[in-house]
Amino acid sequence: MPFMLDEVVNHFESMIYLPMVIQILERDRGTIEFSPFKLKGPYINIVENALEMAQSELKESNTYARNKKMKLIKKSKDDMFTEYVLIHGGHEHERRYLNVRLRNRTEELISVYFDKSFINPEVK
């Protein structure tokens, strides 16, 4: 199996994690909108800023993947693992991710996006 550059692996992992981050943030935004909070605006703004940053990064990764002729395929999932096939440069790389690892990393990324939305709330 040929070596994959860190940049390529980072984009593949963005293509794995960011859709999960986006899905969770969209669900959370809906929950906040219909919750009994008196002041929903600040919470919605934080979630929307984080959502926009995640969507922007996913778009960058998808564009990179398209330009480099990369493809990500979700192969299988069971109670413990999710397996992906990464296609790049005419080679297929199979990677197995622990579902707990996927969940924990997604949670870490959400925290990162929340932190960024606190630091630069106008930056999207």
Rank of each mutant, 00 (worst) to 15 (best):
V85R: 07
P42S: 15
R96Y: 15
T82F: 04
Y84Q: 06
V123D: 09
V112D: 08
T106C: 15
K68G: 03
E57D: 10
E92T: 12
Q55G: 04
T106V: 11
K69C: 10
D79Y: 13
E33N: 09
L72S: 02
A65L: 10
H93L: 08
N49L: 03
E60I: 01
S35Q: 13
E26A: 07
R29C: 03
K68A: 04
A50D: 01
Q23N: 10
R29S: 03
L51I: 10
D115Y: 07
L51V: 06
K74I: 15
P2I: 05
I16W: 03
Y84A: 02
V21E: 00
D79L: 13
M15L: 14
E108L: 09
F3T: 08
M80P: 00
Y43P: 00
L109C: 06
P42C: 11
L58H: 09
K38H: 07
E26Y: 07
V100H: 15
L39P: 04
R103L: 09
E83I: 02
I119V: 08
V21C: 02
L39V: 12
D78F: 11
K75A: 14
M1W: 15
E26W: 06
Q23Y: 03
K38D: 08
E52T: 08
E33Q: 14
P19H: 01
V8C: 05
Y17N: 00
Y17M: 00
E52M: 11
K38V: 13
V100D: 14
L72N: 01
N120I: 05
L58E: 12
S117C: 06
S14V: 08
S61Y: 05
M20Y: 14
N10R: 08
I73T: 12
R101G: 03
S76E: 11
F34K: 10
S56T: 05
